[in-house]
Computed example of a mutant assay.
Amino acid sequence: MQLHVLPPKYAWLRREPGPRMLVEALKLYGVLEAKGTADNPQIMEWAKEVAKAPGLGWIGSWYDKDSIPWCGLFVGVVAARAGKPIRSKLLSARDWLNWGSPVIGAPVLGDVLVFARGSGGHVGLYVAEDRDAYHVLGGNQGDAVSIDRVSKDRFLGARNHYATAQPDNCRRIQMGADGPLSMNEA
């Protein structure tokens, strides 16, 4: 599988040995939602993949268009590929607040971040932060798997799931505040 090129300021992420969810998410960087009425077969396969988990069979038939918000699906497929359990409501971004364990203190590299988005939400993985925003690796950000700055004002909580111990490289990453803030991940 050819890896999509990360922006230069995030190229260091390719050298990170973990956490496993981050490593799996980076493999999907650059996947795009199809234009118009077409559907990206790769995103559609993610729905079939997570539908194999116990209690999630409904996702394979319900998720039939990549125009359906897919940030939760992205985090779900990344979690599954990393050997983590996934929840029955994984398509609901805010339901990720019930997954794994709550992060006590500040989020760190690879944590699952949940944000408010109107009455709904958005979910992705922490890769860095600046004074005003988290830098989030997520799906359905500008109709792609990308890294966007999401305002800390929208932050609802962070979660993680480690069977043994958190990897040593999980840490806070401070970066510059260059680039626009994401206003609507859909």
Rank of each mutant, 00 (worst) to 15 (best):
N160Q: 13
V145Q: 03
A116E: 15
A144Y: 00
D153F: 09
D130Q: 07
S146L: 12
V150I: 15
V127P: 06
Q166R: 13
N140Y: 04
Y126G: 08
L113V: 14
S146A: 15
V108Q: 13
A133T: 12
V150A: 02
R154N: 11
R131L: 13
R131V: 13
T164H: 14
G157D: 10
Y134V: 02
K152G: 04
A163K: 11
V150W: 03
L137C: 08
F115M: 05
Q166V: 07
H122V: 05
V112G: 05
G121Q: 06
Q166N: 00
A165D: 09
Q141I: 14
D130S: 15
G138T: 02
R154F: 03
G157K: 06
P107R: 07
V127S: 03
H135D: 10
D153V: 13
G124K: 02
L125C: 01
S146C: 11
D111E: 07
Y126V: 08
H122D: 08
L137R: 02
L125N: 01
H161A: 12
T164D: 15
V127M: 01
D111H: 13
S119H: 13
F115C: 07
L156E: 14
S151G: 08
R149D: 04
V136W: 00
G142R: 10
R149T: 00
R149F: 00
G139K: 06
L125E: 03
A158I: 10
S151P: 01
A144V: 05
H122Y: 14
G118V: 02
H161L: 13
G142C: 07
V145E: 03
G118N: 14
D153L: 11
Q166Y: 00
L125P: 04
S119F: 07
G157V: 14
D132I: 05
K152A: 07
Y134G: 10
A133M: 01
L156C: 08
A128S: 05
V123F: 09
H122R: 11
R159E: 07
K152P: 00
H122C: 06
R159G: 11
P107Y: 13
H161W: 15
K152W: 09
V123Q: 06
V108P: 01
L125A: 02
G142H: 00
F115W: 12
V112R: 02
E129Y: 07
V127R: 00
Q141E: 10
A163Y: 07
A165L: 12
G124V: 12
A163W: 09
R131T: 11
